[in-house]
Amino acid sequence: MSLKSNILDNKQQFLALLGLVCVVIVLSFLSEYFFTANNLLNIGKQASINLIIGLGMTIVIISGGIDLSVGSLLALTISIMAVLNVVHDVDIVLAGFVAVTATLAAGAINGIIIQYGKVPAFITTLGMMGIARGVVLLISRGNPSMSFPEEFLWIADGSILWIPVPIFLAALAAILTAFLLKYTRLGREIYAIGGNEEAARLSGINIAYVRIAAYTICGLSCALGGVIFAARVGAAPPSSGMGYELNAIAAVIIGGTSLSGGQGKVSGTVIGALLMAVIANGLNIIEVDPYWQSIVIGSIIVIAVMVSNMRK
């Protein structure tokens, strides 16, 4: 990254990080239970799905787009898995594979329509949000399919090297995404088309490929989020993932990635997702009415962007 944007990003991220640290300190004083290993792991688990989807969203937003369909795509993975596994008795691994592939394809379709149909990302993914949710309802018939196999639930409850699996997967995804953005050609091209698409095109960059890849990766992140969600809930409620697009966008924005594209970092999204999970968990522990959660998160988004604009 270039010098100035590095400082800028870091400053914005630094503010979010500072906020995170402050909230953690305050909550540690307010509740003895908050700063225990158990609760912190709990927060990590809570943050993991939002973070994984947020990573896909980070890529799409850096590329100059937006994806409103992530919540529905998450539900799509879950219900395809449930229908195949629970209703049709397909092996869970195969069912998972089909579900992930289908979700990935839905992401790719987003990219294809935006690129070749010249429909703005906001509209395309808004449409996909409705379509994917409809497909979910159609194939599940509104039925939550309550019985995934016992072994599958390990994805939510098990651990790898004492780290809960969801946290492990989220961390791995974050590292891979950061690596993709910084050290691969595709990553650089994602920044390039988000920063100035015309200049990227006139430099011989294959815009169509980069854009479709960005939305496909976002679809992949929804699929991974969906698998973890299904294991955690142990069922496939057709309403799963509702409102997740806003949480993912919030994590990205709080982390200092600009909605106008071309700039942004994975570390910011990690901080953003953690901050949101800590606040949700903290409000819970100190027994604040849960309805306050979204008021607080909403305010944080606006304040984060306000503070970052003030310095300009």
Partner: peptide, 16 residues
């Protein structure tokens, strides 16, 4: 508008 990505470094523009 067409030649440079202004919010990228010169370095990254050159290798684009």
């Amino acid at each position: 508008e067409q030649g440079l990505n202004l919010i990228m470094s010169c370095l990254e523009n050159i290798s684009l």
